[in-house]
Amino acid sequence: MELLFLLAVLCYMLSSAWYFAFLFFQKKRLRQTGCCLLAAGFGLQTLEIAVAFARCGHIPAGNLHETLAICAWALVGAFLVFQYRYRVNILGIYAAPMAALILVASAHLPRATASRPDLFKSFWLVVHIITIFLGDAALALACGVGILYLLQENAIKRKNPGFFFRRLPSLDRLDTTGHACIVTGFTLLTIGIITGMIYARAVWGHFWTWDPKEVWSAVTWVFYAALLHERLAVGWRGRRAAIMAIVGFAVLLFTFLGVNFLLQGHHGQFMKPKQ
C-alpha cells in the first residue's frame, strides 16, 4: 500500500521533470516519456485505491489524506483523457506537478479514518464521490488551459512572440479544449450534486438542508452554468472565458477545501477522526 503510494508520487514527480524538460527542449521523446510516467502513476494509484476499497469495503475517502489522493488520481485521469482527445501536450507542466504536489501534501495529513464507516456504505455515495472528483479535475484542467491561453494571448497581443508563443498551441485549440473541460466538468458536477442529494435524503431524510457545503456547491454550479450559458448566448470565448475558468476554479477550491476548514457542515462528519 505504502509502497504503491510512494511509487505513484515518484512517477508524478519524474513526469513533471520530463514535462518541464519538454517545455524547454521541445523533443517528442520527452513528452512521450512524461505521459507514460503519468499513466504509470495513474495505474499504481488505481491499484492502491482498489486495494483499499477491497479491504475496507467502501470507497477510501474517509479523511483528507485519502480524499486528496483521490483528487490527484482524478486529475491525472482527466488529464490523460483530455490529452488523448485534444493533444494539448504542454498541459502536462500543469497537471503532473499539481498531482505530485497534492499527493505529497496528502502524505503529511493524519490518516485516522472517519468515525462512522457505516455512512460510506451506499451506492449513491460512490457515484457521488467519483463524479464530483472527476468533475473537479476537469475544471482544474480548464483552469490550467485558461492560464496557458492567457500566456499565449499575451504573447500575441504584446507582439513579442517569445518563449511561450512557440511552445503553446494555438488560441483556438486552447479555447476549444478549455470549453470541453468545462462542459465535461460541469456535467459531472451536476451528476455529483444530484447523487449527493439522493444520498443525503437516504441518510438524513432531506434532499437539501442549506448546509454551507451545499450552498457553496450551488454557487459553484451556478457560476459554471452562467459561464456556459454566456458562451452559447453571446459567445463568451477567448480571454474572458479563460479568466472565468480560472476564477471558477478558485470558487471550486473554496467549496472543496475552504468550506471544510472555515465553515462547519455535515461533510465534517466524514472527516472527523475517531475519538
Binding site: 500575441i156 512572440p161 498551441p169 494555438s170 488560441l171 483556438d172
Partner: peptide, 19 residues
Amino acid sequence: DHAVSISYAAIELARKIFG
C-alpha cells in the same frame, strides 16, 4: 522553425490564433 519573411510571419501568427 520560424518564418523569416513578412508574409510568412503573418501566416504563422494566424495559425497561432486560429489553429
